[in-house]
């Protein structure tokens, strides 16, 4: 356990020194502010840029618009940013060979994987919490959000999907040992989810459903009980991928 915390501490210092903490805080604050801003400014923009005399009847933005922006921006931009940031977590050390020294000194190989995954998980928690709090604060200040439902559950869906993608990135990164390998594998997995989503029946298990169903969750068309199968599947898949990465890394030649 002591070893594990030691390696975690090293991971933490590394991520601070490589400006990961700074980038996560700044980018996810920007994303958090952008959501209510886009929701609020869109009708004004239409008024300003429409030719004289055109009359567009746009309804006043509501709290739902702000949250729709959140579930459009954070899964797209936020996840891409995050996967890019953590796409080098294994390959950097494998390329430089810095892990060899630690492993020959008796560090368990599973420790490396779990500590790295845990660190990325902490960063993902920080990122989601940050943009969620900022969007929540702005939305609560400008609109009334009492009619929105399952706000926390919807964000946890997004969080769980992010965990799965993180696990897949870590696995791809360990497998190919290049910075682009991890991103590529993640991209392929997401494309596979999208292809599966073409078939309507897959909605009962597809992890992608966690992202697409958030809007219906907020309006109350779906309840959390409709989503528990993809939710559990995504969590188990994430754990499975991490375990796979561990067994794979144990056999990997350095």
């Amino acid at each position: 356990m002591n070893q594990w915390f030691g390696f975690l501490k090293k991971e933490w210092f590394e991520s601070v020194k490589t400006y990961k903490l700074l980038l996560v805080i700044v980018i996810f604050s920007i994303l958090g502010i952008l959501n209510p801003f886009t929701a609020k400014i869109t009708p004004t923009l239409f008024e300003q840029f429409m030719p004289e005399g055109t009359f567009v009847n746009l309804p006043e933005p509501t709290a739902l618009d702000s949250w729709l922006q959140f579930y459009k921006n954070v899964p797209q931009m936020g996840l891409i940013v995050f996967i890019l940031l953590f796409s080098t977590m294994m390959s950097k050390e494998l390329e430089k060979g810095t892990l060899v020294i630690l492993l020959t000194k008796g560090l368990h190989r599973s420790t490396v994987i779990t500590a790295k995954f845990f660190m990325a998980l902490c960063y993902w928690t920080l990122a989601i919490a940050l943009s969620f709090t900022i969007t929540y604060a702005y939305t609560a200040y400008y609109w009334d959000q009492s009619q929105l439902q399952h706000l926390l559950f919807a964000v946890s869906c997004l969080y769980v999907f992010g965990i799965l993608l993180l696990a897949v990135t870590l696995w791809g990164n360990t497998l190919f040992a290049t910075p682009y390998g991890g991103t590529l594998v993640t991209l392929l997995v997401v494309i596979a989810f999208f292809i599966a989503a073409i078939f309507p029946k897959s909605a009962s298990w597809n992890p992608l459903e966690l992202l697409t169903a958030t809007t219906q969750l907020l309006t109350g068309e779906l309840t959390p009980s409709d989503l528990w199968i993809p939710y559990i599947i995504t969590l188990f898949a994430a754990i499975l991928v991490v375990l796979l990465t561990m067994t794979h890394f144990k056999r990997k030649l350095l």
Partner: peptide, 23 residues
């Protein structure tokens, strides 16, 4: 008046983006 209305959004956005770019 429009600018003042959106200042609570614009100010942190501009500070963060410019700050990151300059850094």
């Amino acid at each position: 008046a429009l600018l003042m209305e959106y200042l609570p959004f614009l100010l942190p956005l501009i500070i963060l983006q410019l700050g990151l770019a300059i850094f």
